[in-house]
Each structure stands twice: as structure tokens, then as C-alpha cells.
């Protein structure tokens, strides 16, 4: 089968994708207190990419992504490892959690723990994988006979 970007999908995607991405980020941030977290957030963002893919194909996915999928995976890994090792460097030990209180006016008080940074790393890795799948496996789809 071949994907033909249809107007309906295109319009749908345009409106859905930003929402999905925002939701995914929200889910990432509140994950510590509500159902959610890096995995679910990352997967939601992945679904957003899926929508982009359905609308515009692999090329569109590549265009939407700020960085290459593999770099994203690497960045996610590095962030996660960095937060893990940070504790060790600061003398507390591998994966010791630290915390930073932030007062963001319009969201309210939020504590950016090292766990959140860690979860952000998770988020990036998951998004990277989905992006990888879409751009690689999906790319062939378009050129398929």
C-alpha cells in the first residue's frame, strides 16, 4: 500500500501534532505524581510522529525532527547517564537523586528533580527509536514498487 497525503490528514495532522507534543511533554513532567513519565510521554510524542508520517511520509518526519534520530537517542542516553553519574561525581553515588525547586509563574511551583531530567532522557530515547523506525522502515515504503 502507498500513502497519499490527503488534505484531511494533512489538516488533521497540523492541528493534532502540536497538541500531542504538548500533551506528551505535560505527561513527562507530571509523571512523578500522575500516571505518565518518560516512557508514556515519549510514546505519545512517537504517536505524534506517526501522525506526521501518515500525513507527509518519512520525508516529512525528517523535516519535523530537530535532530537526527540516532543523535536524539544518543542525547537521551547521555542525559540519562549524566544525571545518574552526576550523583556519583558529587559524592553521593550512582543514580542518587537531587532536586531543584523552580517557581514558574504560570504553571505553578514545580520541582525539577534530577529524576525529571533522567525521565527527559528516557523520553528522548523513546522518541528517537520511533523516529528511527518511521524514517528508516517508512522511507522504503515510499519508494516501494
Amino acid at each position: 500500500m502507498r500513502f497519499r497525503p490527503s488534505l484531511l490528514l494533512d489538516v488533521g495532522a497540523r492541528s493534532m501534532v502540536p497538541t500531542l507534543v504538548l500533551v506528551s511533554l505535560y505527561v513527562l513532567v507530571v509523571g512523578h505524581d500522575e500516571p505518565g513519565g518518560g516512557f508514556i510521554g515519549g510514546l505519545l510524542a512517537g504517536v505524534a510522529l506517526l501522525v506526521v508520517f501518515l500525513a507527509g511520509g518519512a520525508a516529512q518526519v525528517s523535516r519535523v525532527l530537530p535532530i537526527d534520530p540516532l543523535t536524539m537517542v544518543g542525547a537521551g542516553m547521555s542525559v540519562a547517564v549524566a544525571t545518574s553519574v552526576a550523583g556519583m561525581v558529587l559524592g553521593a553515588g550512582l543514580l542518587d537523586a537531587g532536586k531543584l525547586e523552580l517557581d514558574l509563574a504560570w504553571i505553578g511551583k514545580i520541582s525539577v528533580g534530577s529524576t525529571l531530567v533522567f525521565d527527559a532522557g528516557v523520553y528522548l530515547v523513546v522518541v528517537g527509536l520511533v523516529a528511527m523506525v518511521l524514517t528508516r522502515l517508512g522511507a522504503r515504503e515510499e519508494t516501494a514498487p
Binding site: G76, T115, V122
Partner: peptide, 28 residues
């Protein structure tokens, strides 16, 4: 104490964060 009310997520990112680190390595 660990800073979260969602116990499962706290386990994943704090108590047993090493599992999670391993898991994203698998993904990577």
C-alpha cells in the same frame, strides 16, 4: 520522600532507576 506521588513512576526513575537506564540502553 522521593518527591513523587505516582509510586510506579518513582520506582522507575528513582528507586529502580538503574533498570530504566538499562532499558533505554536496550532501546538505543
Amino acid at each position: 520522600d522521593a518527591g513523587g506521588r505516582n509510586v510506579v513512576n518513582v520506582i522507575l526513575t528513582d528507586f529502580r532507576a538503574l533498570d530504566t537506564l538499562g532499558e533505554i540502553t536496550v532501546i538505543a
